[in-house]
């Protein structure tokens, strides 16, 4: 009985503290709005725990700091749930924010949300992922995933001398970048009839799942010359499996995203290529464009941050960009 009492008191205390801190935050928000001078930019991201988005968010935060007191930037995490993102967008609309930066979980599912933001007269900047109804947004900041796939596959194909067996580690099936990066692969592979895809499976963007799939392929006796992975995490997983099987250097591995860890693997010769998508650059530009739009200034329809191929000799250069 006594234990129970103490426990409930602790729980209640935690609850109250949570409420108080939560209240404080909303207070400052409303204050900001009341002062009228402070403009609010709402940022809707897919998932804060995604490596790429972590760096994109970093870029956004830096840009926000430079904008100074005039602007307030609020971040929302949809945890890869399109419905959750819709709910967050509706909240921003009711708050009448001055601009919204959106990384859509799903192009198609985002349509009504984009329409609603447009109807509310809030300037919308899509980042990283082009929208299905992009014409309703004032601007797009990002890169083209098809291009990423093309750059990666082109490099692999040339490294193989236009001939050999490759395996493909897909991202989660049906995700926007999975579809577009694969599209990029196919665009290149048309021109290389001697490169054969001998196996493909999904690693769901995760390192452990990519590793398991690769281990099984290695055991199945396939003759594999190269691994093309839709992101770096899975490429690292594949590299670990290859290392464990004692085949390091015999199989080329390429990823996309150029995360610091992937660049490190590149330096150690465990990865062959990765493709740099300037996460910070995208985030930074998105916030700058959103700030302009919020002030009513004119912005371009598109800001394309190009992909760049990262080879081992350029590793340090790219690592610098994260500092």
């Amino acid at each position: 009985m006594k234990m129970r009492k103490i426990l409930s008191i602790v729980l209640i205390l935690m609850f109250v503290v949570g409420l108080l801190t939560g209240c404080n935050k909303s207070d400052s928000q409303t204050q900001g709005q009341n002062q009228e001078t402070k403009k609010v930019i709402g940022v809707l991201l897919c998932d804060f725990s995604d490596q790429f988005q972590v760096y994109m968010k970093k870029g956004m935060e830096e840009a926000a700091k430079e904008l100074g007191d005039e602007f307030q930037v609020i971040f929302y995490d949809a945890k890869y749930d399109a419905n959750e993102q819709l709910r967050q967008a509706e909240n921003l609309i009711t708050q009448k924010v001055d601009a919204i930066v959106l990384m859509a979980v799903d192009r198609e599912a985002a349509k009504p949300m984009v329409q609603a933001i447009h109807d509310a007269g809030i300037p919308l900047i899509s980042v990283n992922r082009m929208l299905a109804n992009q014409e309703l947004a004032v601007s797009y900041v990002g890169s083209d995933d098809i291009q990423a796939g093309e750059i990666q596959m082109k490099a692999l194909a040339e490294a193989l001398g236009g001939k050999g067996n490759i395996v493909i580690l897909h991202g989660s099936y049906g995700h926007e970048p999975e579809i577009r990066r694969q599209q990029g692969y196919m665009n290149i592979l048309k021109d290389y009839p001697d490169i054969k895809i001998v196996a493909e499976n999904t690693g769901d963007w995760y390192r452990d799942k990519g590793m398991k799939v690769m281990e099984n392929w290695l055991r199945s006796g396939l003759q594999i010359d190269a691994v093309a992975a839709h992101n770096d995490e899975m490429a690292i997983g594949a590299a670990l499996a290859i290392e464990d099987a004692g085949l390091l250097g015999k199989i080329k591995v390429a990823g996309i995203d150029a995360t610091p860890e992937a660049i490190d693997f590149l330096k150690k010769g465990k990865l062959t290529y990765t493709v740099f998508q300037d996460a910070k650059g995208q985030g930074r530009t998105a916030i700058e464009v959103a700030a302009k739009a919020a002030k009513g200034e004119k912005v371009e329809k598109e800001y394309i941050i190009p992909f760049e191929l990262v080879t081992p000799d350029k590793a340090d250069e790219y690592l610098q960009r994260y500092q």
Binding site: Y173, A199, N201, V213, N216, R219
Partner: peptide
């Protein structure tokens, strides 16, 4: 099951 299906190169959707 995971291992076997990969060894047999069963299409990932069907897996």
């Amino acid at each position: 099951l995971n291992n076997g299906l990969d060894l047999l190169h069963v299409s990932a959707y069907w897996q």
